[in-house]
Nucleic acid binder design. Structure first.
Length: 364
DNA sequence: TCTGGGGTCCTAGGACCC
DNA sequence: TCTGGGGTCCTAGGACCC
């Protein structure tokens, strides 16, 4: 069986910053908008391992992070830069694997032409070194003939490690891990499992099929098979590299508002920005969704499939404003909560005709 | 005390069609 | 006057991931 490797960058955004400022190597660095700025309604995007010692994690509210780690060094996020570096990582990985499937900005699955654990281990060590030397970035690598096990192994290897799991060791490797280590089992599902007495993957392996079906629905059988060390075809295969399904922009307001005019203005700007992004990728959209997050943090959305695909900002803008107006009017008739965040999303993509050539020429 | 900005996939009900 | 079964599409909501 050929091995699959997962390469997962460690504290990615922080590492991108530290390679430009090596003096911060072992400092408690946090990427996020510092809590001193008046509009600091945000969360930590990435925390260095030194900062994690203080109990700071990514996705933690910045105020809470600042309390836990007052000496933290805050660096404002530069997402375009992290995107560019991600491209360099992919290019480098492509020279070392049969196929590279990017899974997120800091993670990729690779198909290897190797069938034994020792050569895979050596391969992983050389790739890790290459990433460190050429790009100055630390990574963790997991390997297994089963895709999902390779992913779990890369998590287990963090930070800076390599974990290769031969197929016959799969069950023993998974057994002691918390159920939450399985991708797809999040906080809600983990809590339900916990209450039913399933804490580790090993316990899931011994659970009855009926009990697991009740707790996990249609995932039950594949989770059960994984827990017993024999992943299903679907979980074992390398994920496919399909094009994007949707693109969206989200903006959290500096202050909650009930002002429809303010929200419409915001959507006008967002429609312009989003249509520009789609044009760069040569995509036409046929569906639009507006989502509002209310002050109580719940969300409501309104969307529409268009009769035909469109490009440019005009349709995106007028439809977004109509959908948002619907949402606001309904809210006014009911609870009248203020708006905290506005999201605009476009999807159901079709390739753009005609102009694509021009874009390719411009890129060349 | 507060909770970002991207994404993916699944479910469930209703409309509609054969 | 009463009314099956199967399929697809659309819409809203929710869980989950990085």
């Amino acid at each position: 069986m050929r091995y699959i490797a997962y390469v997962d960058m460690d504290a990615y955004y922080v590492s991108c910053e530290i390679r430009e400022r090596p003096e911060l190597e072992d400092a408690p660095v946090l990427v996020g908008r510092a809590p001193t700025s008046p509009e600091a309604r945000g969360v930590v995007l990435s925390a260095s391992y030194a900062a994690r010692k203080f109990g700071v994690r990514s996705a933690m509210p910045v105020l809470q992070a600042a309390r836990r780690c007052p000496q933290a060094i805050w660096i404002p996020p530069d997402l375009p830069k992290y995107g560019r570096i991600a491209g360099e990582i992919r290019d480098l990985l492509a020279t070392r694997a049969e196929r590279v499937i990017p899974l997120s900005i800091d993670e990729a699955a690779l198909e290897l032409d190797l069938e034994d654990p020792e050569p895979v281990r050596a391969w992983a060590a050389s790739v890790q070194e290459l990433l460190k030397e050429r790009l100055g970035l630390p990574s963790s690598i997991g390997g297994s003939p089963y895709s999902i096990v390779a992913k779990i192994a890369s998590d287990a290897a963090k930070p800076g490690g390599i974990r290769i799991v031969p197929p016959e060791e799969t069950r023993a490797f998974l057994e002691p891990l918390p159920a939450r280590a399985i991708p797809g089992i999040g906080p809600k599902t983990a809590q339900r499992l916990d209450q039913a007495g399933f804490h580790t993957v090993g316990e899931l392996a011994t659970g009855s099929t009926e009990t697991l079906r009740r707790l996990l629905g249609r995932y039950a059988d594949s989770v059960h098979a994984l827990a017993r060390g024999t992943p299903s075809q679907e979980m074992g295969r390398l994920p496919e590299d399909r094009g994007p399904r949707q693109h969206s922009l989200d903006r959290t307001l500096a202050h909650d508002t009930r002002d429809a005019t303010e929200i419409r203005q915001m959507l006008t700007e967002m429609a312009g920005e989003l249509s520009g992004l789609l044009a760069q990728e040569g995509l036409r959209y046929q569906s639009i969704v507006v989502r509002l997050r209310w002050e109580d943090f719940s969300q409501t959305q309104r969307g529409r499939q268009l009769p035909a695909s469109h490009e440019g900002a005009a349709m995106l803008e007028s439809e977004a404003i109509r959908l948002a107006t619907d949402l606001l009017e309904r809210e006014r008739g009911e609870r009248d909560r203020a708006v905290r965040r506005v999201s605009l999303s476009a999807g159901s993509f079709a390739p753009r005709r005609g102009r694509q050539t021009l874009l390719d020429e411009a890129a060349a």
